[in-house]
Write a protein that binds this DNA or RNA. Sequence first.
DNA 1: GAACGCATTTGGATCGATCCAAAAAGATGA
DNA 2: TCATCTTTTTGGATCGATCCAAATGCGTTC
Lengths: 347, 347
Amino acid sequence: MPQSGKSVTLKDLAAHAGVSRSTVSLVLQESPLVADSTRTRVMAAVEALGYVYNRGAATLRSARTATLGVVVHDIANPFFGAMVAGIDDTLQNADHVSFLASSGDDPARQARLVTRLREQRIDALLLCPAENTSSSLLDTLDRCGLPCIEVMRHVGETPRGHYVGADIRAGLARAVSHLVEQGHHRIALLTGAGHSSADRERMAGYQQAMETAGLVPDIRTGRHDLTRRAGLERTLEIMAEPVPPTALICHNDLMALGALLALARLNLTPGLDCAVIGIDDSDEAALSEPALSSIATHPHAIGRAAAELALQCLDHPGLEPQHLVLETSLHLRASADHFLHRSREPL
Amino acid sequence: MPQSGKSVTLKDLAAHAGVSRSTVSLVLQESPLVADSTRTRVMAAVEALGYVYNRGAATLRSARTATLGVVVHDIANPFFGAMVAGIDDTLQNADHVSFLASSGDDPARQARLVTRLREQRIDALLLCPAENTSSSLLDTLDRCGLPCIEVMRHVGETPRGHYVGADIRAGLARAVSHLVEQGHHRIALLTGAGHSSADRERMAGYQQAMETAGLVPDIRTGRHDLTRRAGLERTLEIMAEPVPPTALICHNDLMALGALLALARLNLTPGLDCAVIGIDDSDEAALSEPALSSIATHPHAIGRAAAELALQCLDHPGLEPQHLVLETSLHLRASADHFLHRSREPL
DNA sequence: GAACGCATTTGGATCGATCCAAAAAGATGA
DNA sequence: TCATCTTTTTGGATCGATCCAAATGCGTTC
């Protein structure tokens, strides 16, 4: 229990338990080779001396660090909060840990972060790439053999390595056809400027769904970021047009919630005067007033899947690139449904 | 530029640049001892071979890792998103990195996370302790000499080591006196169950402010967590009472936003029928409808201050415990001000 | 009792950087 | 030219764990 000065090492444990360093090492690795009596003696020493395993030293000799890097482009976005929770749950079960960093959608900062993570000798990288990430970043990772899993976004037209995402395209198709059934013709998509694959996928999925329905696509991109404030401001602009859309599909729930605020400010009732559908189905969606319809992307499940895939990569180094596209589902609430709306008393 | 097989080491750099390992090491440490010509030759080798510094190996010999651990109790809370951004900004300037982990307010999980972080040989720990954290955790950290900075919450009645927080007490005093000026008498506080120092500080500050104003405190705690949903449900309950309060001060903005939703559902107008004030002044506060009044806690500044304090601890090992309590300010918006409310058209 | 098989345990080399005392290379003055 | 002082550079020991080949102990069997 004492030990205030220097740190306790394997050698100290060995002396305390009356065995060699090697044996102690075997015990710590949970090797089946050691006798039970020895194991308990060593574990007692660990307790008695307050030993803390030195991963850095171990890493020097053995190849793995049991540490993954996670880089997201916006930690403040609740989607990533939930995703990170999914990753951590999975890693915790597998006795791994993660380094989390946020790039703020800046490729230069992202590059620095990745370098730092490599210095820590992470075993694999889960990357939600910043907009305009150069493919040379992935080249570098390939070249030095660091497994990388792109999540939600990918660099280039199609993911070249492992990828985990959500089937936004199918979600949009369902959303558009629901809106059409409700009688909407002027359905607009409010998304980012197309610098990320997630933007492009939303645009393509929406466009295809609109064409299938025989409607004219109406894509509103902008230099805005993808926040509540951007949704608010952009919607105020849009609704001021001579012939505004009657339905808005937004890049994510944050923007959609901003759109609801804009409608409220304009004294329009979301769901009656203008339908709004978000993407992600965050916790807030169900709680807003009126409740927000949303395409659920299940961030927790995506985090789990990405972490599991990363762990697989470690066990099977040659694994050919996996593309996991998880299902989405449309959660209809008052913001985009006349009937649901009527079933509640009006504001 | 090649290097696909093994990793590049100091020795490879030394061979490529025609110097010894030691010299290369000095260059990487930016020592002033090496000649400029040598330095450029070595840096060229770093570029040419795609060398990545091995922090683990360095750590084995030298005491420091340039890595801090950050443990928060709820990464999904936007307060901590902003705080972590503040920490990272500061660390980035100082060439340090952070390991971020979220305890989910579970002391057992928190203990595991701290152990993992210690295995990584972090230089210091920034801890927003989980509820009911035992002080033995801090004892252990002390004993092994790991500097720890408690942030926003502290274990025990008063922080025993370094602490960085916000002056919630002053914020509450200002909030209460504003509400009194507006003619409120029944002002309730909606907060956590008192398992954390942050809960207790809110209760004490509120109680004192109420007594100063000659009013009867009305504290509503609960087994609820501190989310939007909890704020919604609790407010629905409270407003159903025979003589409900006319003003609510909520533990944080999330709960306050939930309270606004509850009022809307009850067809009550926040700011006119019942005033609501949150704590944190998150981005969302200004955007809600009506806009939420809030006591600003400046999470980004708190993150910066905590990180700076941690860096100071590293430079000055004996530093006596610092208690930094940052100012708060009351941001008044329509949710708690008759006048502001009248200046906008009604819902 | 020697030989064998099996379950455990062990010492020494090793990973990639840092530290340190000491050597080498230049610069200066007598 | 040689001693002296600086400025640079260097080899070997070292950090704390892992790996591996070899040693040990012990019960069986011939």
